[in-house]
Design a protein around this nucleic acid. Structure first.
Lengths: 244, 244
DNA sequence: GCGGCGATGGCACTCAGTTCCCTCGTGTGG
DNA sequence: CCACACGAGGGAACTGAGTGCCATCGCCGC
């Protein structure tokens, strides 16, 4: 955003912006989001009404004051990725970046979660924010999957799955008032997505001594194939091994 | 919605609602969405301003006049599903239901697509609509996956993947001005999701005579497991069989 | 004819968001 | 020292979406 540009570059934070966020959340928690007008917020913060809209293009934006910066961080993270990184793993790490932002201020995140949960307008706004994250992931994957058959489809589906897994873990963490360990939960959720799309789970610490990933001689598979499609074989193995 | 209740029951359509939609789209296409006020619409339709908001709770709703009914249809479809239906396959069929609504009026769908593509407010609104579809799918899957480990996570991820695949195919169809066959495209996209989540692709016409899905005796798998995770085994089989 | 009653129109209001202009402090060149 | 530009903030007035309230009209049963 325009405000974070100069602020981030100079390292100084505009006190007015923070004052507006603080005033807004006090009123939102006291009497509810829709019962609070912008005039109420600026009156409490002691600033002019016009200044509110200088810092936040809409009333909803004050609820998500740092998503613009986080989105920029994620975009930069993905742009800095090269061919050496496994694509699905990379977008999972990008998702972890977002989780980190939530985990920085647990109490603030929990308050906001309670707000967005019960205010339809804020839920809709949050959707548009999440959509931009998902688009960023999908765009990155689209570039990495270029050439593969159904590259664009795979990119969209994987991005949606990663975002869904991230949000599932995040919401579960937020529902527990930010008490537990967020990264553990999200690692597990993203591991499921990675396993579903054939990518290795994020370094699950090999238990066996000196296992060389180049020579998977500890995996011996004998398949007697009589025309069964792959999904049938996979399901057979899943039930045989007893659910991963 | 309130209006479609009585209309659907009686089979008669309120002419006023349709007149408002027609007037709105004429103006939206002529001078753009944001350049058209609700007063313009009601003036062209020859009705009172208050009546507009009786039929459409917001200006955005007039762009999606039948999604409320479609969402109800999908909910009913899922509610009518019993244990006999494979869950992932079932939500894919539910997604096809939505596609059918778009395919009913190709020209209208294409016009709306062009509109939502370039108006941020409409894109945000469409997200909230899509979100409700996704929630309906996820709720259904949550019920079907109850008991499985990570049932809620799987439900969210699969629902998101199905919606993403559906939207990818739908948008590709809309970009081609609704010329090609929409269901073929979406079948292919949903087939990818089904294969990714171990569910059978949509009835790929078994080549072998009288294959009984209850007795998969034509699949013989022998796995010598020495601590390898499932994804390694699956990858091994994939390379062995040569990519499905 | 009379009294609901549902659908509609009309008016006034709130509030988000924008436009335009003012003020004030700060620096800068003459 | 003064004039002037400039940027941050303040504030009045405006547009437009959405709501509440009430009057009106047509229709139906009695």
């Amino acid at each position: 955003m325009s405000s974070s540009d100069s602020a981030e570059a100079a390292g100084t934070k505009p006190p007015m912006r923070d004052a507006l966020v603080a005033a807004a959340f006090r009123l939102f928690l006291e009497r509810g989001y829709e019962q609070t007008t912008v005039d109420d917020i600026v009156a409490l913060a002691g600033v002019g009404r016009r200044s509110f809209f200088r810092y936040f293009p809409s009333k909803e934006d004050v609820v998500f004051p740092d998503h613009e910066r986080c989105l920029a961080d994620m975009t930069a993270f993905l742009a800095a990725s090269d061919e050496g990184h496994e694509p699905v793993l990379r977008v999972c790490d990008a998702a972890r970046l977002v989780l980190g932002m939530y985990a920085e201020n647990p109490s603030f995140s929990v308050q906001r979660y309670r707000l967005t949960k019960q205010v339809p307008g804020l839920r809709a706004y949050e959707l548009s924010v999440v959509w931009r994250y998902e688009r960023a992931l999908a765009e990155y994957l689209r570039g990495r999957f270029a050439g593969r058959p159904d590259g664009s489809l795979r990119a969209d589906v994987v991005a949606a799955a990663v975002v869904a897994a991230h949000n599932n873990a995040l919401r579960s963490w937020l529902r527990s008032d930010g008490k537990g360990d967020a990264s553990t939960t999200v690692d597990h959720a993203l591991g499921y997505v990675q396993s579903a799309f054939g990518a290795p789970p994020a370094a699950p610490a090999p238990e066996h001594p000196a296992e060389d990933p180049e020579h998977p001689e500890d995996v011996v598979v004998v398949v007697s194939r009589r025309g069964a499609p792959l999904w049938r074989v996979v399901r057979e193995i899943e039930t045989t091994l007893g659910r991963e």
